[in-house]
Structures are given as structure tokens and as C-alpha cells.
Design a protein around this nucleic acid. Sequence first.
DNA 1: GTGAAAGCGCTAACAT
DNA 2: ATGTTAGCGCTTTCAC
Lengths: 341, 341
Amino acid sequence: MPPTDHRPLTLRDVSEASGVSEMTVSRVLRNRGDVSQATREKVLEAAKTLGYVPNKIAGALASQRVNLVAVIIPSLRNMVFPEVMSGISQELEETELQPVVGVTDYLPEKEDKVLYEMLSWRPSGVIIAGLEHSDASRAMLKASGIPVVEIMDTDGHPVDCAVGISHRRAGREMARAIVKAGYTNIGFMGTKMPRDHRARKRFEGFTEQLAKSGIEIMDREFYSGGSALAKGREMTAAMLERTPELDFLYYSNDMIGAGGLLHLLDRGIAVPGQIGLAGFNGVELLDGLPRRLATMDACRTEIGRRAAQIIAARVADPAAPVAPVVELSPRIEYGDTLRRR
Amino acid sequence: MPPTDHRPLTLRDVSEASGVSEMTVSRVLRNRGDVSQATREKVLEAAKTLGYVPNKIAGALASQRVNLVAVIIPSLRNMVFPEVMSGISQELEETELQPVVGVTDYLPEKEDKVLYEMLSWRPSGVIIAGLEHSDASRAMLKASGIPVVEIMDTDGHPVDCAVGISHRRAGREMARAIVKAGYTNIGFMGTKMPRDHRARKRFEGFTEQLAKSGIEIMDREFYSGGSALAKGREMTAAMLERTPELDFLYYSNDMIGAGGLLHLLDRGIAVPGQIGLAGFNGVELLDGLPRRLATMDACRTEIGRRAAQIIAARVADPAAPVAPVVELSPRIEYGDTLRRR
DNA sequence: GTGAAAGCGCTAACAT
DNA sequence: ATGTTAGCGCTTTCAC
């Protein structure tokens, strides 16, 4: 076997193999312009037998167009983001655009880096989680001149436009429902992530609203690392030990809430009679637990869809009108752990 | 405000702003070659104040190098894959390489499309889930001339090389452990996914090994869609109704296994005394359930790491020696649902 | 319906 | 240490 030095095939190779000019080959491969049926077939045939794969790098440089949409999210391990991704993919499937994911691990420095990296590929648009970004990132986004949609959160000022829910409001509404249901001794558990602005805003909205009813959180605890389910169990056990008079536990996510629920059931504590529970996200994952945890849907797929729609519309027509902020309205799902009044 | 027509900045702009040749600007921005401290600072200053972001498309075309590694997986919604991704990211973090994800939804046609799409960006390597690909995909991978690592599975013949576990063996080993523990009336539950070759291979290995002990599966059921936990519950209930003499249930993944476990506990059935259970994957997610489900770790992070290492090594030195197949050895985790003999 | 020429924004290779 | 030249593989534009 000859030492096949792997020079990738070029348009020229297809051109020579088919006896058609590079230009016409290019037209056939992109379905652009009029090409006779005869030449079209010759070209396709040649391209296929050679195994030609077009070079998008050269194409993008020449055409100044890149069909990529940069999607920048904090993590893939929190089910929320894959679900947003699905919404985005579904919507972009109908277009020429393709999502490309970058992960920041909730680190602003990494966000800067990932964003810079992605922008250097000159994508057609950016979808980025959250409204809190470094000055450097905001500057890059503004200077990029491409459509930018900030997702998940609407409490703040987008660079370009935003699609999400108000986490502050979500926290307030949950507080209202809990107070209305007659609970007064309330504990909070969440993740120890100062960078998780959305969890923070929910917490703030929650405590503010409680304050309006003259209620203050009786106990709180934050965790990091490990299995959320197990942590929910442990934290709940510890908190009830410490503060036995609690009658409601609000969790910053459904997984730790589920852990808490399992602990209470193990202990034979009446839910929601003796102690009520609520989480956040509405993860389908948990359907199938002995009780359905009260929660609030974060509208993940819908957010992805809407964001993708905006990008697609702006790519199709840069002058397309865009609402600066699209705020979706999640509803409380009472499930079986928050009594209704 | 003048109608800022957004021509993105080029090297030339930085060159003019700093009074340094384009070539030297390029050198500074890439930390290549000797540049005096003075010019370096001038250039960095100019680039920063202008907000210049290099154009990787042009860079890649000129240098014929693209620091991207294509990672092609069936789904992001199955936690297995984000975990593999983490392993890959961790490992690539130390290099210049960057992972780019493509999702196939377990559809061969989509795999062809995604692969073609990614290869057209001329990545430095490909990491792709599974060993089963269309002829078209195998041909593309071979012709690409770049390192290709097929992951997750080692039962078959890789195009280039593979890192994973033998799912057939995993199925056999679980069968052996179950038989050894004295269970004989065995049921199986899994996903209705003819495309999930790894689940299929586990099932095949499982039944083959049982056959050697003269045991045949007594009942089986496959589901699709919906929450795995809930489905596990339902299927388990239905199966025990139908075939009450079952004393062991083997699930193709931990989520449905967990659903089954919750059902049995609700019903007050002794686990693993009356009925034993086992799943597959070793998802940390589930730590915190009332019992730890017997399972087998799929070595997800490790697989990602190893695959990334291979790509990185081959990019650094194309002649680097590579083992054609790296087979990791998952161990049975007995947990609390499979008695030990 | 098809082709030829110019150039997209960078970097390799070679000056100086 | 810095600059010059010639492309990378395509697409745009214009000519036929």
C-alpha cells in the first residue's frame, strides 16, 4: 500500500474527476444557480465516489457566512441545560443553522474564554445563559454585531434581548403560596453557588415576600458537591434535628427536594400535613417518586425554542423587530407536598 | 449615531492602530516567535482597546489546523453522555484542543448528517459513540485521515481505535452473579430502542449466560418515552401482576430499576430476599434512594478521559502508537438489592 | 448554463 | 526582531 499522504480532497479534485469547472461543481454542491441536469449528475457522481467532504472553513471565509449558533451554558450535568438545548435544536432543525455548545462551569473567567473562543468562529448568533456577565463579555457581545439572546432569566438588562422567567417573582410566588397554605416555620436549602444568580434571585424573592407577611426564614443550609438526592436527605435530617419546629422546607432544586421528601417519608412524617415541601424546576425525571414534589416549571424547552426562533428570525432578516425581553410565566405545581388553601 | 456598519475588525485594523505589521501582530496574538516586549505591549494594547477578536476561520484556512475535536453522541438527555463529555473536557483542558458536540438522537441518518457536517469543519479528531455506523459514516471516518476513537463499546471492530467496556460481558457477568445468588425466575425490562446496540448486547450476553445455567428469561418488557422512574414503576407492577413467580428483575438502566425498587418497597416486598434487582450504569444521581440498587459502573468519565488522551497524543504526534482497543472492566456493585453468595 | 478572475483574513516560509 | 510574499479552498462577481 502506498503511503497515502492524506491530503483532504478539494473542489478541484471533484472538478477534474468530473470534467466540470470548480465553479460549477460548487454550484451543484450548494444547489445554487442553474445547472443542467446532466452536469449536476456528473458532479454528484464524482463527489460521491471520491468521498468529497466540502471544506466549510474555506466556504465560510469566502462567503463571510457561518451557519453556527453559539450556545453558552454553565453545565451539562444539570438536566436543565440539556433540556434547553433540545428546545434550541428542535427549532434550529428547520433552518440551516446549527447549535454549538460551550460550557462555562459557572465560572466568569471561563465564560469570557469560551465566549471569545466561540466568537472567533464568527457564528451567526449567540444564545447565552443568564444576564450576569463580566464587562469583557458584555463588550464582546455588543461588539460582535450578531444577534444575542440571553436566556433563563429576565431580572436584569440584556445586552440585546432576553427570554426567560423572573426568578425573583418565582421565589415570591412560592412564598405567597406557602404562607397562604398556613405554613409559618420555614426552612431553606440550596446549593452553595454564589455564581448561581438565578437560585440567588429566587431566594431573595422568597425571603422578601415572606417578610411582607412578617415571616423570617427559621433555618437555612447550603451544600456543594455529591449526589443531590443524598445531600437533600442529609441536610433535611440535620435541619430537622436542629430546628424541629419547622413546618415547611423550600429547596432550591427538585433533586434535593426529592431527597428531603424521601427522608420525611422514611421517618413517617406526614407530608404535607406536618411538614410541607417545595422545590424548583419541574424535572420530569422525578415522576415516579412516592409523592409528587411541589415545584415550579422553569419552562426550559420553551425558553430554548423561543431563543432559537429569535436568532433564526434575525439571521433571515437582520432588521426583524425583536421584543427586548420575553418573560414566560411558570405556574406552581402543587403536587402532593404543598397543601392548597 | 452613524450607521455603524458592523464590519468585524481584522488584523489589519490592529496593525494600523499599533503601527506594527500584520505579521507581527499575528505573532503577538499567538505568542509565536520572538517579539520585543515593547511591540508586544503596543499590539496587545491596540487589540484590547479596539476589541479585536481573531478570525479563526481565516486562521484555520491559512494554517491548515483546527483545534476542534468532534464528539458525536446519541443524546444529551441521558446522563451517561454529559458524564463522558466531562471526562473529555477535563482531559482536553490541558491542551489547545476543544470539544464540539454533535447529537444524533440514536438515528443513523442523523449520525451520517452530523458527522458530515462536523468533518466539513476539518476537526483534529473524532470521538464517536458506538461501533455501529452506516457504511457511509465508516467511509467518511476512514477517509478523513484524522484520529477516530469509538467509545462506550468494545464488542466489534473499530474504524481506528476504541475505548469502552464489553456490554456483552457486562450482561454475562450480571447473569453469573444473579444465578450464583440463587435466583432462577428472572425478568428483564428495558428501553424499546433497536438502535441502542449497547443495551442489546448486554441483553444478549445476559440471556446467553443464563442459558448456560439452563435458565431462560421468564418475562420481559420494553418501554419508550416518558419518565424512566415512572415507567420502571409501571412496568414492574405490570410484570409482577403477570408473572408473580419472578424472583429477580434485571433492568437495562438504573432509572427504571430505581422505579422498580420504589414500587417493590411500596408494596412491602422484601428486597433482595423475596425479589432481587439490578440495573446498569452506576448513576450517582440515585445515591440517596432508600436502598442502593445493584448495578455496574459504565466507566463513563474514564472512557471520556482515555478517548481524549488518545486524540491529544495523536494530534501531538501522528505517529504515536495506539492500542486498537482499550477495554475497561466495570465491576458489579451489589448495593442492597442483590444478595451475595 | 458555464467559466475566469479576484479575494475573504489569516499564517508559513522566507527575507532582511 | 520584524517585514514581505504567496497562498489556504472556497464563493462572489462578472463575463461569456
